[in-house]
Amino acid sequence: MPLGIFAFFATLAVISALGVILQRSPVHSLLALIVTLLCVAALMIGLDALAVGLLQAIVYVGAIVVLFLFVIWLLNLERDPEESGRLGIKLLAAVGAAALVGELTAFLTRTHMSQQTVNSDYGSMAQLAGLIFGNYLIAFEVTSLLLLVAVVGVVAVARRWPSPRLANRPPTLSAKPQT
């Protein structure tokens, strides 16, 4: 990937990532998250990982983020909960993040990595499938079990069990309150 295109996507990814954590409205955060994910997908494609980059767009943007959107709708989260006076932890977070970035950058600039040349089918679906159904077959099969457990678990956790305590709750699915 040429440096200019990389710089474009990298800048966009960082700005939208900041948008995710700094926006007040969860839906705006969500939109920023979508932009970040698409930028990362583009960068992956730039690293010759075409199939995985597109899978990232399909799985994350097409499915996982929609799930977030559903939950935001269900909970009717118009605004963020009020932030309490928590300057200390914010300061700590900023210092910690700066230290993390500094450490990783120092580490990264000192490693010299030469990029291997790869043949044309690198990152293709065929190569990926060959590995998944070859070396990683057991892990792949276990993944299906994980998904099954997750389905059962989510239904068990999120289902509205009949309970007198929940009988007179206000309905949670509604549009913005008319103030």
């Binding site: 597109l54 097409g62 293709s124 679906m125």
Partner: peptide, 18 residues
């Protein structure tokens, strides 16, 4: 001419939800 054209179409359709 994409070697993973079908994945690309599915990804674009996934975006269309928003």
């Amino acid at each position: 001419p994409l070697t993973a054209g079908i994945l690309y179409i599915l990804a674009a359709l996934g975006l269309g939800v928003y």
